[in-house]
């Protein structure tokens, strides 16, 4: 399967040809313009807040707009916390599910579970939010005896449930790209099924698995609606020391996204500092997620280069 463009172009460039080309490049230009506009917006509109003091903006632990105090530290903490909790919950379950579907189940059952997982990946976040409010929140409240079940932990767990199907689905796809010959060769040596899965299949699917995880983590970090509904939306909660971490997780918190999804956006526009600070939150979120994806991409390429396994295709010339 080759790229269409690799079939060489003919010479004639009539009006139709020019029209199609122009239209296509214009479309791409529009998409590019949108993206650039979004990035520019984030940078430019947050400038007033940045100029007022980056240190305070990023490290300040209190956010209280009536007093014109805009510190994001507790929100950064919140985002990191829920993302880590969600990932810790989802990753092992997702990989285990992927292995089960790809390697352990008979074909028909695997197909059913695969479709079910893909379906789950498409459930809208607001539905997860509703489920979270009515089921997860009381569960956390009862299990931990917290005054309210709206906590960072709740947000993290809900995110975990949300990204589980996505990571599982993508991981399973990665496992399936490992050719059957590889498994056969390993079994023929005498490796049992589990050893084959671990040392051959998973090993060779590593780049794809990394991608899947990164995508899941990115989604968790950027998720707004579900987190908004269960995280408690309390500003200024930052643990003072490591010992306070567990209790901080069991209290209401705030994430970058839950603040960005709040009604503050509607009222902030009038004040340059308030609006600028909110957009700065958006910029931080953007930078965080993009960095994550970039790192993941590099890691993936690194792994692919190191593996470069060619099944039967010669990597070099015939000696």
């Amino acid at each position: 399967m080759q790229r269409v463009a690799s079939v060489p172009a003919a010479r004639p460039r009539d009006a139709v040809d020019l029209g199609v080309r122009a239209g296509a490049w214009l479309g791409v230009g529009l998409v590019l313009a949108f993206f650039l506009a979004l990035v520019t917006f984030l940078v430019v509109q947050s400038l007033p807040a940045v100029r007022a003091g980056v240190g305070e903006l990023v490290l300040g632990r209190h956010w209280h707009y009536p007093s014109r105090v805009f510190g994001s530290a507790s929100m950064i903490f919140g985002t990191v916390a829920v993302t880590l909790i969600g990932t810790a919950f989802a990753a092992p379950l997702a990989f285990g599910t992927a292995v089960t579907i790809s390697e352990l189940l008979p074909r028909k059952l695997a197909s059913v579970l695969r479709t079910a997982v893909e379906l789950l990946a498409g459930v809208p976040s607001v539905v997860y939010g509703l489920l979270g409010v009515l089921y997860l929140v009381p569960l956390v409240q009862d299990a931990f005896g917290s005054p309210s079940g709206d906590t960072l932990l709740t947000g993290g767990l809900l995110l975990g449930v949300m990204i589980l199907p996505t990571v599982a689905s993508l991981s399973e796809g990665a496992l399936r790209t490992v050719p059957a010959e590889a498994r056969e060769a390993a079994r023929a040596l005498g490796l049992n099924r589990g050893e084959t899965i671990l040392h051959v299949v998973v090993r060779q699917a590593r780049p794809g698995l990394v991608s899947a995880l990164v995508l899941g983590v990115g989604r968790a970090a950027g998720e707004t609606i579900a987190v908004f509904l269960v995280v408690g939306r309390a500003d200024g909660r930052l643990p003072e020391s490591a010992a306070e971490f567990p209790s901080a997780l069991l209290r209401a918190g705030q994430t970058l996204t839950s603040k960005l999804g709040s009604s503050e956006v509607n009222i902030a526009y009038g004040s340059e500092l308030h609006w600028g600070s909110l957009v700065a939150l958006g910029l931080m979120l953007f930078l965080g997620v993009m960095t994550l994806h970039a790192l993941g991409g590099f890691l993936r390429v690194l792994l692919e280069r190191r593996d470069r396994a060619a099944f039967g295709r010669s990597g070099g010339n015939d000696a």
Binding site: R3, V4, A5, R21, A24, W25, V28, V31, L32, F34, F35, A37, L38, F41, L42, G218, A221, G222, E223, T224, T257, L260, G261, V265, L278, V279, G282, L285, F286, V289, M290, H293, G297
Partner: peptide
Amino acid sequence: LLADRKTARLLRVLLNALNAVPSILFGIF
């Protein structure tokens, strides 16, 4: 069809980046 390998790769990067943007940022923007 139209782009050389390098430009095509850049376009893919753009699309991936756009896809990774958290949806709330679409909202704010």
